[in-house]
Amino acid sequence: MAFIGLLTLVLIALPHGLSYSQREILVVLTINILVVSSYRLLTLTGEWSLGHVVMMGVGAYASALYSKEWGVPVPISMIIGALTAGLVAWGLSFPLFRMKGFYFLIGSFAAGEIIRLLWKRFRDPFGGPKGIKRIDPFPDIDLGFIRIDFFDPVNYYYFTLIIVVLCLVILWRIEKSLIGLTFHAVHWQDKLAESAGVNVRDYRTLALVISSTFAGLAGTLLAHYIGTVNPNGFDIEQMVFVLTWAIVGGTTTLYGPIIGCITLTALNEIVLRELGLEQGRPLIYGLILIVSVLFMPKGLEDVVKRGVAWAQLQIVKERTNGV
């Protein structure tokens, strides 16, 4: 409880200690936490996709177009945009879940590339390679005594933070429910799950649709903040970053991918930027991935678990010494 209180304070105070550009990075980081956490939900069923970032893009494009072309108010376009990503994922599940494991991985990559190709090919409505520009921003909120301008990264950070925390609570509830248990069952022994009457394909599809919907929502959060989307923003390089966050952080806990994402973003922004090595980011991420798989196969979450266990042991020791 005390921990949650402290965390809340830190999260509220955080942007005020940062420069303007760092605040912008903080917004993107918050969005990325939703991307990697929703990705983890899919991995619970044992399937790893390379199309997750494209699903994020589907949400971003959809919400941008709904608001720009049809005049749908932005908060509503975001919700429909996220649902669009879920719907597209549902459609893709039919060809994709004829495959498993490695073939699913490659299939999801191909499906993602096809979607990106459509964005590039059809100038109308997707804007071609340059994508969509001047997307409607999230509208200001006028409470009479105070006007909240979401162009200000601090305000938009608070907004995303609330949304992302809500989503994390939902993801956590799903995982801890009987549905989450069934996801695990499908992962560890799909044959046994099936012989217990589980429709394994339906559950794989459910996980894909939920994770894509949340990825889509993350995409809409990004689109209405930076005001532009283009096909390259959702390419395989971005996907590799998401994979790296998930693997370096570990995927057995909800917080694993989150610490992976935060640690690597911090590393990126603080170390690489200072050293002027930003261009080498893919290379360095590749190295980090290899090193962490070799020396830290259980991810950062395992380091945290052991740290907590060690701290508890110290407390117990101190108490027994005191007596």
Binding site: L178, I179, L181, T182, A185, A193, A196, G197, V198
Partner: peptide
Amino acid sequence: LVGTHMMFKP
């Protein structure tokens, strides 16, 4: 619990 899946549908 997974075995009870059919009796108690999530």
